[in-house]
Simulated scan of single mutants.
Amino acid sequence: MRRSGPAVEQLIGALIPRPLPRPIPTPAPLPNLPPPRAPTGPNRIELDVARLVRAGRCSARTLLHQLDWRPEHRLVVDVADGTILIQRHPGGRVLTDPRGALTLPAAPRQLCGICGGDRIVLAADLTRDRMTVYPMTVVVRLLAEHHARLADGRRGR
């Protein structure tokens, strides 16, 4: 006696072969990577990114602390190749802020094309006791040149 209703399809075993037994592959060994090196040596540089407020201030507390630039230290500000160079000097006109802020004078900001609200990269050279302020336009240009060199080097292989 047959049931009435939709017919149930059954697969034919001869048309669908059974999977072959295969051994489970062993994973490839991971390479031994060298441990990360701590930044030591003659050129120890620490980086930070900050946003400049309209008055020309940015937070630089961590880098000021690492440079051991205490509140009321006098700084000399100069411009070179589109960047702002800052060094501690007894005759400097700019003072470090007790709250950990760094004030960049208007003239160097204008020469480097930095406006209020812009992001900047701060690089503290701990061995030379100075800080360099990079506008994002300079950072982007340097990275573009670096990536172009990488791409050209890979084409030659």
Rank of each mutant, 00 (worst) to 15 (best):
G153R: 08
A123Q: 06
P105V: 08
V94L: 02
L122D: 01
P90R: 08
C112H: 01
L150P: 06
T83G: 08
H147M: 11
G113K: 04
G82R: 00
P135Y: 02
A106P: 06
M136H: 04
V76F: 03
L102K: 02
I120E: 00
T103M: 12
R128I: 07
Y134S: 05
D125T: 08
L150A: 14
R128M: 09
D81I: 09
Y134V: 05
G113F: 06
I120V: 14
V77I: 11
T83W: 05
R88T: 03
T127L: 10
P135R: 02
L95G: 12
L142E: 15
A80R: 15
D118E: 09
I84W: 00
G117E: 12
D129K: 10
L111G: 06
R155A: 12
V121F: 03
L126R: 06
G113T: 06
T137I: 08
E145C: 12
V94A: 03
R149M: 12
R119S: 15
G116A: 05
H73P: 01
P90W: 03
T127K: 07
E145T: 13
R141F: 05
E145N: 14
I114K: 02
V77Q: 05
A106D: 13
A148L: 15
V139G: 02
D152M: 13
R128P: 02
P105D: 11
T83C: 10
P105W: 11
L126M: 06
G92F: 00
D125V: 07
T132A: 13
H89E: 06
V140F: 11
R74F: 00
H147K: 13
Y134I: 07
T96E: 01
G153N: 10
G153W: 06
R74I: 00
R155K: 14
L143E: 15
L126G: 03
L75E: 01
T103F: 11
D129C: 08
R119E: 13
R149V: 07
P98W: 08
R109Q: 07
R130C: 15
A80L: 15
R88I: 02
T137W: 05
V77C: 07
L104G: 00
A151V: 07
Q110L: 12
P105Q: 06
M136N: 09
C115W: 11
Q110R: 14
P105H: 08
G156W: 14
V133K: 01
V76L: 07
R93T: 15
G113L: 06
A123T: 03
M131F: 08
L95Y: 12
A144H: 14
M131N: 03
G100D: 04
V140H: 15
C112G: 02
V139R: 01
G82S: 00
L102Q: 01
R149E: 11
C112E: 04
R74K: 09
V121Q: 07
V139N: 01
P90C: 07
G113W: 04
H147T: 14
V121H: 02
R155V: 08
L122R: 00
L143G: 11
P90I: 05
R88N: 02
T137Y: 03
V140Y: 15
L104Q: 03
A144Y: 11
H89D: 09
Q87D: 09
L122H: 02
D118I: 10
G100A: 07
R119M: 11
V121I: 08
D78P: 04
R88C: 06
A80G: 09
L126P: 02
G153Q: 09
D118P: 08
V140S: 13
D129I: 10
